[in-house]
């Protein structure tokens, strides 16, 4: 009997799985901390200061200032999504790490919850590293932008859950390319990241807001980096929270269906 929305009985032992992933991460901390530092610089030079030269002003600001919050949102998305797709799949299928862990007092619910929390943490780390870089170029307002740090964990959790759902149903590692190219890449381009969502026809705008999580994350990060709050932020925040909870429950159940036979 397959269930999809049973409330997961996870425990605080999920923390041990988080610790395991952190320990692995810290083994190569130089790579893990320096590369995220470089990434926004590359985008800024190519798009902000390169392409942006031809865009005098967008929505009343420079192009670099317009895309800076989007770069953070994309980093949040990519960190958690790829951690909980390719990363989790390798641990689950190739390394049999999950099998080893569930032979101890930890349950599969603990393992998946720990993986998702770790995915969210990757987003938090990545976003936090980007903030000083962008601040150094004067592209983000402080202190409001500091709220991106807690936001990155919540939004990261959402993308971790999305990734984990795909990991649970993918027949093999190559098939993870489907969600990557058909979901993550379009989201990267059409979520109000590199041009305002308002340029798109109304129905497409609504469709994007309803189905593309990144639109909400970009909306919030942009409001924070510009220190320009609006009422819609609450809608976006609620959207992220509710969808995260639903997908968390779904991700754990899908993984349980896959692994506990």
């Amino acid at each position: 009997m397959r269930t999809y929305f049973k409330v997961p009985a996870f425990s605080k032992r999920a923390w041990k799985v988080w610790l395991r992933n952190r320990d692995v991460f810290m083994k190569t901390y130089k790579v893990n901390f320096i590369l995220p530092f470089l990434e926004p610089l590359l985008y800024l030079f190519a798009l902000g200061f390169g392409l942006g030269r031809y865009i005098e002003v967008i929505e009343g600001m420079t192009y670099a200032r317009f895309i800076a919050p989007a770069l953070i949102a994309v980093a949040i998305m990519n960190s958690a999504f790829f951690e909980c797709t390719y990363g989790s799949y390798v641990r689950m299928y190739y390394q049999k790490t999950f099998d080893a862990i569930i032979a101890t007092p930890l349950s599969i619910e603990d393992v998946i919850t720990g993986e998702l929390l770790w995915g969210a943490t990757r987003s938090l780390i990545h976003a936090t590293i980007m903030l000083p870089v962008l601040a150094a170029f004067g592209l983000i307002e402080l202190p409001s932008s500091l709220l991106i740090i807690p936001l990155s964990f919540l939004a990261g959790f959402l993308f971790a859950c999305i990734g984990m759902c795909f990991t649970a149903i993918t027949p093999n590692i190559n098939s993870l390319s489907y969600p990557t190219y058909l979901f993550i890449t379009p989201m990267f381009l059409f979520s109000g990241t590199f041009f305002p969502l308002t340029l798109l026809p109304k129905p497409i705008q609504y469709a994007a807001l309803a189905t593309l999580p990144l639109t909400h994350v970009v909306g919030i990060t942009r409001a924070l980096t510009l220190a320009a709050p609006s009422g819609f932020l609450l809608v976006s925040f609620a959207w992220i929270l509710i969808v995260s909870l639903i997908l968390f429950v779904l991700a754990v159940n899908l993984m349980k269906n896959r692994l506990i036979v």
Partner: peptide, 15 residues
């Protein structure tokens, strides 16, 4: 109370 040595090697290659 159990100790389990599985058939497949599932040691953690990262450690």
């Amino acid at each position: 109370l159990l100790g389990v040595a599985p058939q497949e090697t599932n040691l953690d290659p990262d450690f």
